[in-house]
Design a protein around this nucleic acid. Structure first.
Length: 575
RNA sequence: GCGCCCGUAGCUCAGCUGGAUAGAGCGGGGGACUUCUAAUCCUCAGGUCGCAGGUUCGAAUCCUGCCGGGCGCGCCA
């Protein structure tokens, strides 16, 4: 018996046969699909259509030759016959032995089924940075998409064989955090009865008033005097005082982030502070220390910097950007871009072979300068930085687009959404669409239809199987050492074909950075199971049939649980 | 004006590195529980794949140009 029991290895086997026919030294990639119509076989490939050009053979002749060759070789034990159809499709009819072998292989693999699909030579140490929301206000539903997407991507990468580090970049340096600190100071002053309005361009949200109240409880009137001196204009506060508000507020907000993300089942290995990039280190460049000083020194040494208009610029145009970019303003203040350079340099220094940043579409204009920066800095390989741009979430309320503004405090938080429809529904919903498409979230509809969320369809299949296995008693325990040599019926075969695709689905999700494909697959697998359940009695007097079907249940259950787990969704034993 | 993303069923969206008769969920019509979980299943209706050219044996998929929508185009982040 050979090991051609999932679509990946099956396709590879056909690729080897095709390569032999073509006189090629390495296997030719072959695409294998389940045809929509059963008379077109169990699996089908267009390999002959794709590769007939230049052989002097018609696609149909090549398909026939491929079929014969494969059937005489590696396919002998698992394939009964083939058809050549249409312009040159090769339709394969697989034997019962293939189906039993596939089931046994899945049962043997257990929770590891589909693991490690990335070939060892292609595995990388990958850093994935996502969410990275400014610590100036609560996480809202727009952020939930990137949290769910990024987390699913990390789980998939890890499962497939990459070594993944999940990272959150904290923008606690610069203008926005300054406004945040001032706004918090203003709210604090108000709690002490001072006339300190939140600045016009500050953060107006109620959450800051709540934070200020906590701060009063914690420190009492410690900052009354410095505030009293600047009433009513908090922007005139001494920087050292604002820093205290900034850092206290940042820590509170970050704690809230962690709590929300934990509830959403999203975790990070590393939290990097932007402000921290400016601290420490011996190297200094015009007063800049830390990672930033090191980055500046290096760029200067390599001739990438220029002074103009009182500012310091990076020559990004030499690497494809449409204009050079300012790193240090006329005022002497660094730009966000400078921080980002130091940050990404640091990530490379930490030994990652591949960096991924997941950004919202509102930052896509930033991509050219990032790629330029990456080309300018060692190892001068822009391909090692991958910027995944996710489209935004269009929030609808009462049928109209709702614009959220963190500064105005007009937001719907992730916690609000989780309260309303539950964590599983949020996670599943947020990875249900391609990251290239805008995601529409109708709040009223989401709440009203939460019980119809497709996640329950998938979970129900899992719970249903759990129930059957409970009823099976001892037979539901350990999988049998070997399956009975019974014929495999049409619904059982359909379910097995779907199960056999799982490793390929994982592979595609990773290659295309597309967790939504797993979302779609799980829906298909659940549907296939429900159909099987409808037509095939699992527990019966027929011991052989029962053994096969219990095995099928076990395999489906573990695959559903594994797939849901990769999306951060629970697989309940009962519903 | 330039750049990125999108345009597929009434709605929300898959399918896009070219393949056989374009799919799913929701919504609408009609059915199925004395049997392992009906949060299920079956069935019907519903389509100029934005428009127009091009490439080829074959285009929702690739190319060009339009049209429509989203997001950007700071010494903000």
């Amino acid at each position: 018996m050979n090991g051609l029991f999932d679509f990946g290895s099956l396709a590879a086997s056909l690729g080897r046969a095709l390569a032999e026919l073509r006189g090629a030294s390495a296997a030719i990639p072959v695409d294998l699909v389940v045809p929509p119509r059963p008379e077109h076989g169990d699996v089908t490939t267009n390999a002959a259509l794709v590769s007939a050009a230049g052989t002097g053979q018609t696609p149909r002749d090549l398909a026939a030759a491929l079929g014969e060759r494969w059937l005489a070789g590696e396919g002998a034990a698992i394939c009964t016959r083939f058809d050549v159809a249409g312009p040159g499709f090769l339709n394969l009819f697989l034997d019962h032995s293939w189906y039993r072998g596939a089931l046994q292989a899945i049962l043997d693999a257990g929770v590891d089924y589909g693991r490690g699909v990335v070939p060892p030579a292609q595995r990388r140490r990958v850093n994935v940075e996502f969410v990275s929301v400014n610590p100036t206000g609560p996480l809202h539903v727009g952020h939930a998409r990137y949290a769910a997407y990024g987390d699913a991507l990390c789980r998939l990468f890890s499962f497939a064989g990459h070594a993944v580090t999940r990272e959150f970049y904290v923008n606690d340096h610069g203008t926005q955090i300054l406004k945040f600190g001032q706004s918090l100071a203003a709210r604090y002053g108000q709690h002490l009865g001072l006339d300190t309005p939140v600045p016009d361009d500050g953060y107006q949200g109620d959450y800051l008033a709540d934070l200020a109240a906590e701060l009063v409880t914690e420190v009492g009137e410690r900052y009354r005097e410095p505030l009293n001196m600047v009433v009513p204009d908090v922007t005139r506060l001494e920087p050292e005082v604002v820093d205290e508000f900034k850092s206290w507020g940042r820590d509170r907000i970050l704690a809230a982030f962690r709590a929300t993300l934990e509830r959403l089942r999203v975790s990070f290995d590393v939290w990097t502070s932007e402000a921290g990039l400016y601290e420490g280190g011996d190297l200094e460049w015009r007063g800049f220390r830390g990672e930033v000083g090191m980055a500046l020194s290096q760029m200067d040494a390599e001739g990438h910097l220029r002074d103009a208009d009182g500012a310091v610029w990076l020559r990004t145009t030499e690497y494809g950007d449409d204009k050079d970019r300012v790193l240090i303003r006329q005022t002497g203040m660094p730009t966000y871009f400078l921080s980002d350079i130091a940050y990404h340099r640091d990530k490379m220094d930490r030994g990652f072979e591949h960096l991924i940043d997941v950004w919202g579409a509102d930052h896509h204009g930033y991509v050219p300068r990032m790629k330029a920066m990456f080309a300018a800095l060692p190892p001068h390989d822009p391909d090692r930085l991958e910027l995944i741009i996710g489209q935004l979430v269009n929030l609808l309320e009462s049928g109209a687009t709702k614009r959220m503004s963190k500064r105005k405090g007009d937001i719907v938080t992730i916690d609000d959404l989780m309260d309303a429809i539950g964590v599983d529904a949020v996670r599943f919903y947020m990875v249900g669409r391609s990251h290239d498409s805008m995601l529409e979230l109708d709040l009223d509809l989401a709440v009203e239809q939460s019980s119809k969320n497709p996640v329950y369809y998938v979970q129900y299949a899992h719970a249903r199987i759990a129930s059957i296995l409970r009823n099976a008693g001892s037979e539901g325990g350990e999988p049998p050492a070997s399956l009975p040599q019974v014929d495999v019926g049409p619904h059982e075969r359909a379910l097995l074909r779907t199960l056999a695709r799982y490793p390929v689905v994982i592979s595609e999700c990773v290659e295309r950075r597309a967790p939504h494909r797993l979302h779609a697959y799980l829906g298909e697998l659940a549907a296939e199971f429900h159909l099987f359940y409808k037509h095939c009695r699992v527990l019966s007097d027929d011991a052989a049939a029962t053994a096969l079907r219990v095995g099928l249940c076990r395999a489906t259950k573990s695959t559903l649980a594994g797939g849901l787990g990769l999306l951060g969704v629970e697989a309940p034993e009962r519903m």
